[in-house]
Structure formats: structure tokens, C-alpha cells
């Protein structure tokens, strides 16, 4: 009897596993196809009988990509914009989240709710006034305006996630630091930051990922290749090399690769942050 039961459960496990592998396969197929296209020779890309994996592995598309002088500039611009906006979001967000968790003061609930609901503001509504404001302040096509506009989503997300982490810090720890003679700022630097460093870095990585590929603001607020980030850069490539899918998928792979790497490294903490953040209330 137990044998049958055991066998039955093993069968169920196998079916479950096959189903899971199938679904995961289908869901990762679009990305797989794009990556494999980037390693294919021309003749294997433009065929009506394509294979999933390249028959002849080649880096020709990547060599062609390297010959485009603007492309590294796009990546560098994305790096600058995403790194600065993530750093500012973290610095400002840590102070704000600390105040919202460890201080008791009038207006706390209202400020907290207001900060969090701004996450729902539609970017498309902000983009026209930002465009005219930037042109009046001579900020069109600068890093400054891209960093600022990235903060419009990076900061609310950072605060939202930080609140989730900070609420897990025992109040006693924070109290003890202050009894030991730390003032509030010292408490943040000497107690909160060391304890929360991996989590805070994960939030920084997450906002970096969002900033790296931000599309709407980068598309409308950049005018020249000098300040185009990866998204509008890719947009330009898709216009100039309309049908060269080997080159385009190579560019896409290069743009996504650092994000996948960062995400894989920090996944545990990012997921943990989303988990604790989704439990706390507005």
C-alpha cells in the first residue's frame, strides 16, 4: 500500500516538474530567442527555418555593435544617470524612512501616505510640464534633468521598500544607541546603516535597474547622442538599423546583461524587501 502511495506521489512529482519546466521554457523563450539571434551568423538570422540555438556560433553582430561609436556612450550615460539617481534616492530615502519609523510627530501619517501615493502618478502626465520646465531652465539634454526625473519614481519606491526594512529593526536597538549618547544623525550612521547595509544596497540596485532602462523621460528630454541613455539610444538604433536584428539583439543583450547580473546577485535581498514592504500598510 505504502509502495503504491509512494510511487503515486513520485509520479505526481514528475508531472509537476515536467509542467514547471515546460511553462518556464515557454516563458523564457522570447528572451532566449533574442540572445541566440545575437550569436547567429547573418544567414541563420534571415532564414524562414530558424533554429532556437545557433548552428554556427559567431560574435559578428557584437563586432558590428562595437564599431558604432555612440553605443558605449549610451551605456555610460545610463550608468551615470542610474547611479546618481539611485544614490540620491537612497540617501534622501534613508533619512525620510528613518523619520517616518522612529519619530513620533504631528502629520506623520499624512506625510507617509502622501509620499507613498505619489508612486501612482502617471509619468505621461508629468512629461509635458517637465519638458517645458527643462527647456526654460536650459536643462534639456542634460544629466541633471534625467537624474531628477528618475527620482520621480526611484524615491517613492526607495522609501516604500526602506519602510519595510526599518520597521523590522527592534525599537530597543535604536533606543539603546540614543541612550549611549548618539544623536539622531549618529544613530542613522552608526546603528541603522551597518545593520541594514545589505538591504539598503539591494534597494539601491533595484532603483539602479529601473533608472538604467527608463524610457519615457529619457526619450523626450534628450536631443543628442551625447546624453542619450540606453533606452533612447536603443530607440535610435532600432530606427537606423531597422532590420538588422543580429545587431539589435546584440545591443539588447549588452544592455540587459548588467541588470541580470545585479539582480541575480541581490535577488535575495530585493525579494525580501518587496516581501516585507508588501506587508506594511499605507
Amino acid at each position: 500500500m505504502t509502495m503504491i502511495k509512494k510511487r503515486y506521489s513520485r509520479l505526481r512529482g514528475a508531472i509537476f516538474y515536467c509542467g514547471l519546466v515546460l511553462i518556464t521554457g515557454i516563458l523564457s523563450l522570447p528572451a532566449l530567442v533574442a540572445i541566440s539571434t545575437s550569436f547567429k551568423p547573418y544567414s541563420e538570422i534571415f532564414t524562414t527555418n530558424p533554429t532556437i540555438l545557433p548552428q554556427h556560433f559567431t560574435l559578428a553582430s557584437y563586432q558590428k555593435l562595437l564599431a558604432i561609436p555612440e553605443f558605449p556612450v549610451y551605456l555610460l550615460n545610463s550608468l551615470i544617470v542610474a547611479a546618481f539617481s539611485a544614490a540620491i534616492a537612497i540617501a534622501v530615502g534613508v533619512l525620510a524612512a528613518y523619520a517616518l519609523v522612529f519619530f513620533r510627530f504631528p502629520g506623520r501619517r499624512v506625510i507617509r501616505q502622501a509620499l507613498l501615493t505619489t508612486y501612482m502618478f502617471p509619468a505621461i502626465t508629468l512629461v509635458f510640464p517637465v519638458f517645458f520646465g527643462a527647456s526654460r531652465l536650459n536643462l534639456l539634454d542634460t544629466y541633471t534633468i534625467l537624474i531628477l526625473t528618475n527620482l520621480s519614481f526611484a524615491l517613492p519606491i526607495a522609501i516604500w521598500l526602506l519602510l519595510g526594512f526599518f520597521e523590522k529593526i527592534p525599537v530597543e536597538l535604536e533606543r539603546a544607541a540614543r541612550v549611549d549618547g548618539c544623536n539622531r544623525l549618529q544613530t542613522v550612521f552608526h546603528v541603522i546603516l551597518p545593520v541594514m547595509l545589505p538591504s539598503i544596497m539591494a534597494i539601491g540596485v533595484f532603483t539602479f535597474i529601473l533608472g538604467w532602462g527608463e524610457y519615457l523621460f529619457a526619450l523626450t528630454l534628450t536631443l543628442t547622442d551625447a546624453h542619450r541613455t540606453a533606452s533612447p539610444g536603443m530607440h535610435a538604433l532600432m530606427g537606423n538599423y531597422r532590420i538588422d536584428y543580429g545587431l539589435l539583439t546584440a545591443a539588447g543583450t549588452v544592455i540587459v546583461f548588467p541588470l541580470v547580473l545585479l539582480f541575480a546577485l541581490f535577488q535575495k535581498h530585493i525579494v525580501e524587501g518587496m516581501t516585507s514592504a508588501s506587508h506594511h500598510r499605507l
Binding site: A34, E214, A230, M234, L248, T249
Partner: peptide, 13 residues
């Protein structure tokens, strides 16, 4: 984590 422009490219292809 894939930026929208790259998702767009993937599906266009």
C-alpha cells in the same frame, strides 16, 4: 528587470 525598449525589441523580433 528587462527595460521596456528591449522587451519591445524582443517581441518585434
Amino acid at each position: 528587470v528587462i527595460p521596456p525598449i528591449v522587451t519591445g525589441l524582443i517581441f518585434r523580433w
